[in-house]
Design a binder for these strands. Structure first.
Lengths: 111, 111
DNA sequence: GTAAAAAATGACGATTCCGTAAAGATTAGC
DNA sequence: GCTAATCTTTACGGAATCGTCATTTTTTAC
């Protein structure tokens, strides 16, 4: 279980299936910067920390190692959940089943 | 309801009943720095952001103004949450699309 | 109003991050 | 092997934060 920022950034990026270049594009940063962060040779500025958290849809607290809970956070999570309260019980269950199907597909390989 | 970092820092500090000097002592940084942060003339570095959050016992996400988006009520929504953070970008988009399909089916219109 | 506390402002050298670029090292697939 | 993609490392000038300090403004209490 990673706890340093550099480790959290790398593991989260890989969890999302992104290369450093792809994450850089998504966060509007330089690929070089991503590498510096993941090797620990630099710490992100205020703005860039937010960009990373937004691009990866995680909390800044998780990225910084202040918490072990990796809850989905940020704009992407917000858009995913917006309007959910307007769905019926059955529709929520349908979404739930699809989520679990995607999860099992993801975890089928190892663990 | 404050949303900029400078406002969140000031309101949280006052909520704790601390002066800038007292917060500076608690966070082990300069009173000048606190003032700069609260007036917006500086943004905190990675280390100092963590010190502020620790000293005030709040999340960095709250201090940065990125925590308001994520609230969703209800037990069904809660179980839907679980494990979502382990999904890839593409899977999240798939879920997103399905949710929107269900929503539009339900209410026909949008918004 | 006066005095004290609190906060804001400005400047300084030092340190660090920034984006950009080039080159080297590692990994993965063929 | 070989190639290509991926990641790492280094260097550079520019910009921002750093801690420290002095000064000024604002607020608070008497």
């Amino acid at each position: 279980m990673p706890e340093k920022f550099s480790d959290r950034l790398k593991s989260t990026r890989e969890l999302r299936g992104l290369s450093q270049v792809e994450l850089a594009q998504k966060a509007k940063l330089q690929p070089t910067a991503i590498s510096h962060f993941e090797t620990g040779s630099r710490s992100p500025s205020f703005d860039n920390l937010r960009r990373l958290a937004d691009a990866l849809s995680v909390s800044t607290d998780y990225l910084m190692g202040r918490t072990d809970e990796m809850k989905l956070a940020g704009p992407a999570a917000d858009s995913l959940f917006r309007g959910l309260d307007k769905l019926s019980e059955g529709d929520l269950q349908a979404l739930q089943m699809m989520k679990e199907a995607l999860l099992s597909k993801k975890q089928g390989g190892e663990k």
